[in-house]
Amino acid sequence: MTGVWVVLATLALGTVIGVVRLRRDGRMREQAGDRLTGTVLGAPLGERATLVQFSTAFCQPCRATRRVLADVGALVPGVAHVEIDAESRLDLVRELDITRTPTVLVLDAAGRIVRRASGQPRKAEVLAVLADVVPAPEAARDRRPSHDPSHEPSHQPDEM
């Protein structure tokens, strides 16, 4: 008889966890946080904002998250997308208390953490957060693709 009660309690608990998770998953939460630098991240910060994604190999939604953030990075000028392999940066994972992958941090131009989402964020919400966090573009005509790792301005020789 105890077994039946355990079943009912477990399924009830599972339903509560599942519903809470569905509602919270990927939601951007405000966070007054630490400041990260390009050196810590191992990649240059975006001019206006940086989307930092923590991933692991054992993470199903990381791939879709990468697609969303890369899209946003290509769409909004001055926004860089940096993906960090959580397993090779356990120091940073502990420091920032990251418990799940994907976890996405939104950094402002100075590298301050302003938002945090665990789970796969929705594209519309990331765009809305950027509009909120990033100052209006004055020099938005400068359409350099921000996910381009090479930061040297037009050093490529014109061979054509």
Binding site: G18, T56, C59, Q60, L90, V93, T99, R100, T101
Partner: peptide, 14 residues
């Protein structure tokens, strides 16, 4: 569709 086991992976590594 939540894979709890998959998500324990990072916690274990920590």
């Amino acid at each position: 569709g939540f894979c709890l086991g998959c998500e324990t992976y990072l916690l274990l590594r920590r």
